[in-house]
Write a protein that binds this DNA or RNA. Structure first.
Lengths: 340, 340
DNA sequence: TTGTATGCGTTATCAG
DNA sequence: CTGATAACGCATACAA
């Protein structure tokens, strides 16, 4: 079965392709009668415009591209969920690519998207992206670009992100107000900015509340490892400090859950003997025992906001309105549960 | 900045567009010298073929479409991960759509993909899809189609799925071999086939091992509810049967985790007083205390297999080799942990 | 070995 | 009100 074309309709109706095209678009200069005829037949033949042809003519694809480091992740899949829903409502399609934390791949994928003629691009950068020529290329091609979560400060485009430092600050301040004084931090690798900012927020909260920062309470964990790293560091923490530690703020929920497992196993009472605060508010945080307090990053809102911004810019471009880049900081939220 | 076209290259080199086109494709009838010149300039100008034009000419897009019920789900995001990786390796792009368990939306999305000229389509059907005209349409348009996980038996196309019945049978048989005799089942809604098959597997395992099936031990849970439904039904189970029940096989991990929370809270020992077996092997199963035995559905392999089948069919179509539809049953695996 | 002509399906311009 | 024509960028059959 072949798709119907304008030509098919024109032929059976004995009129020109031009008229058919105009009729379907409700141009003012087509007689109501012709319009009716054309529309009826088009409906009957199930006509849909060929998107290659439209794209070739109008240089727009009604498609956007998204590049994320990885898909199998509650945070990113929630973001994608929001982007897909937003796109759906605007009748856009979405091409999704995983950079897999690989800079070269990310670069190649940008080329693919540009080549594909997408109307806009959303990117959350790979941890290994230090060079931004590929992003500049997008801008040079005049394709709207929004960076989210993992952003590059120097690139001239709209950005959507959370304030990791502030969020960490809030969590640690909460622990302090609850009376905790010896607060450990399980931090991530030195590398990604997120991890640095969360550490800085932790440190600042201590300082602002007159609690001396003790580097011995900071444990560096492997970001990509599974939760067993949390378990192991919890063990180490107790070995190193015994009762001279009363809380842990972890850079993500997974580490906290590993630690919870260790404490449960050892009969160390949470939160009485040690309190815990995670980061990200994975679904898991609400089902573990005890339930884990955590910082909700509002992934859905981040995705939604990014998509809305992108469609705005696409719109502006179509209407030749100059684009003003925006920076949106998404609110995070302390979700207090039973671990502190 | 405008993308380079064949015309640009032809003009600066003073040759025809045809020659440029052929040179880039290494046609035999272009002189090595011309080829070299063309390629060099193309490289320099960063030439990439305009995909709209190519699509219009060749009627293929190097793009496939995927429709899934929902994205924010460990199972589906793992499948997508595999599909994206497979597509990446074949230099294909992937358009992802969420049907959101809505039949009308699914239908519309099929039209969009067809209209978009994708080279193939992968679908996991919505629970509410009872009518398959939209799938037939894909086949009528001669676009390769693979159904995975939630399939329609009557449609003539390749399918990739697990044997839910067998998997459930295996899990329950395991519980029986461990000495459990009063095994409850927390089943899903009556509606999706998965849920029915898992129930049937449960029942068959009992029968085959000479254990009478007791309908009072079967609890119907709301599929879309959160884990609290598992908690509530566990409570009910104990109220109804007291010690006269020694294991539960749940239709998914979430319900099992809800139940675990209840038992932990009540000091009911797992697995001594009651054993648990889940289904799906969510990440959570390995971090909960006690860790939960579950059935791994091999999501990654399912995605990979589906994608490989699709690319095979696309290939056959290009080469005019007749397509033979395949049915692939993905192996499931009992993952035994501490809950039984 | 190179180039000309044609068409893919649509839309915009302009003439009738 | 209608339609002929050109153009988008590329690929191919056919000439030269």
């Amino acid at each position: 079965m072949k798709p119907t074309t304008l030509k098919d309709i024109a032929k059976t109706l004995g009129i020109s392709v031009t008229t058919v095209s105009k009729a379907l678009k409700d141009y003012a200069d087509v007689s109501p009668k012709t319009k009716a005829q054309v529309k009826e037949l088009a409906e009957k033949l199930n006509y849909v415009p060929n998107s290659f042809a439209v794209g070739l003519r109008k240089k727009q694809s009604k498609t956007i591209g998204v590049i994320i480091p990885t898909m199998v992740h509650y945070f990113f899949s929630s973001i994608l969920d929001a982007i897909l829903k937003e796109a759906e409502s605007k009748n856009y399609m979405v091409i999704i690519l995983q950079s897999n934390e690989d800079y070269e791949l990310e670069k190649k994928q940008v080329d693919l998207l540009l080549n594909k003629g997408v109307d806009g691009i959303l990117i959350s950068l790979s941890n290994n992206t230090k060079d931004f020529k590929h992003l500049q290329k997008i801008i040079d091609y005049n394709v709207p670009l929004i960076l989210f979560d993992k952003i590059a400060k120097l690139i001239q485009c709209s950005k959507v992100y959370i304030d990791d430092r502030q969020a960490a600050y809030n969590a640690v301040s909460y622990l302090i107000k609850k009376g905790h004084k010896r607060i450990s931090h399980f931090r991530g690798n030195l590398n990604p900015q997120n991890s640095i900012d969360r550490f800085l927020g932790y440190k600042k909260a201590l300082e602002d509340h007159g609690i001396p920062f003790d580097p011995k309470l900071v444990y560096i964990c492997d970001n990509n490892s599974d939760f067993s790293d949390g378990y192991l560091n919890a063990k180490k923490l107790i070995e190193d400090h015994g009762e001279n530690v009363d809380a842990i703020f972890t850079v993500n929920d997974l580490l906290a859950i590993g630690a919870i497992n260790y404490f449960n196993e050892q009969g160390i009472k949470i939160p009485d003997e040690i309190a815990l605060f995670g980061f990200s508010n994975w679904f898991m945080a609400s089902v573990i025992t005890p339930t884990l307090s955590s910082i909700d990053q509002n992934a859905y809102k981040m995705g939604e906001t990014s998509a809305v911004l992108l469609f705005d810019e696409i719109d502006c471009k179509l209407k030749n309105i100059p684009i003003t880049h925006k920076k949106v900081v998404i609110d995070t939220e302390l979700v207090i549960r039973n671990s502190c």
